[in-house]
């Protein structure tokens, strides 16, 4: 992309998303393997949505990361940082070669996202529950300044247990913030187990609806559905929107899928090989 140009979000080619996401999944696993720690499950569940957003919907400019009219993406579930870093590197925010330094001493690629480290990180996250409030503030500022800026925020389903999320949900609806888009990575897992066994969320769509949000539920690994929902969420109708992305934790790596043990563990050499083979077999263009 020309360094002078802003990406309007329309430029990306949706047909390239499946192969791109396979590559990004490989990046995620290689990063976590090299680091020896990290969170593969929630990175793999989130990658299709984050990649589709940055490829085909977000208005931004990797060469001018502070451009005031850019849309913002806040990864509230900050432990999914490898997914964010893989996409930011792919979009040219920083060299891909740096990915292998994840979590190491002196690296810009901190274990959880930190403002002022790599370009493109919009908020300090990693303490769950804080991102949607920050995104609300971004949307309020955009409205105040008359900028056509969207604030996107990805939440985990375990993260929804934090009360602050629901304070933001109430508040954003009260302010009619149609520039705010929450994306829920509904993968059914959290740290100690399955969300249903720890603190069941009940009817999530009904909850958001009753809080005054526009709600759409999709398959969070189907790029066409993701794109369609992202386009829907741009509607200026006086309501904040939430896209409920039904996902699989560990998606793409059969032995990680829906396995609680892969919330926060790095693959061994052998497991990495096995995972990459599965991904390459499936995702070859």
């Amino acid at each position: 992309m020309d360094s002078e140009q802003h990406d309007s979000g329309q430029g990306g080619d949706p047909t390239s998303l499946p192969s791109l996401c396979t590559q990004l999944r490989i990046d995620i696993l290689e990063m976590i393997h090299a680091a020896g720690s990290g969170h593969p499950g929630g990175s793999l569940s989130a990658i299709d949505v984050i990649a589709t957003l940055y490829e085909c919907q977000l208005t931004h400019n990797p060469h001018e990361p502070d451009w005031p009219d850019r849309d913002r993406f806040i990864l509230s579930k900050g432990h999914g940082a490898p997914a964010l870093y893989a996409v930011l590197a792919h979009r040219g925010y920083f060299p891909r070669a740096r990915l292998s330094s994840l979590r190491t001493f002196g690296s810009e690629l901190q274990g959880h996202p930190v403002v002022g480290t790599v370009a493109g990180v919009e908020a300090c996250t990693g303490s769950l529950g804080q991102g949607l409030s920050i995104a609300q503030g971004v949307a309020l500022a955009a409205r105040l300044d008359g900028r056509d800026v969207r604030a996107y925020c990805m939440l985990g389903d375990g993260e929804l247990q934090e009360g602050q999320v629901w304070e933001a949900a109430l508040s954003a609806a009260a302010y009619g913030l149609d520039g705010l888009v929450a994306i829920l990575d509904l993968n059914g897992g959290q740290l100690d187990g399955h969300t249903a066994d720890i603190l069941p969320l009940g009817d999530v769509a009904a909850k958001w609806t009753s809080f005054g949000w526009g709600v759409r539920s999709i398959d969070g690994h189907d790029h066409a559905q993701i794109l369609d929902a992202l386009r829907w969420a741009k509607g200026r109708d006086g309501m904040p929107k939430v896209i409920i992305a039904n996902t699989v934790k560990g998606k793409g790596v059969p032995f990680m899928e829906d396995q609680v043990a892969w919330h926060g563990a790095a693959p061994t050499d052998e497991q990495l090989e096995q995972a990459l083979a599965a991904l390459r077999g499936e995702g070859a263009p």
Partner: peptide
């Protein structure tokens, strides 16, 4: 109140933890 993972001894997860 039992607070585990105190200090910089936490390591790779970084400051937010």
């Amino acid at each position: 109140i039992i607070g585990t993972h105190a200090g910089v001894g936490v390591g790779a997860d970084g400051y937010s933890q």
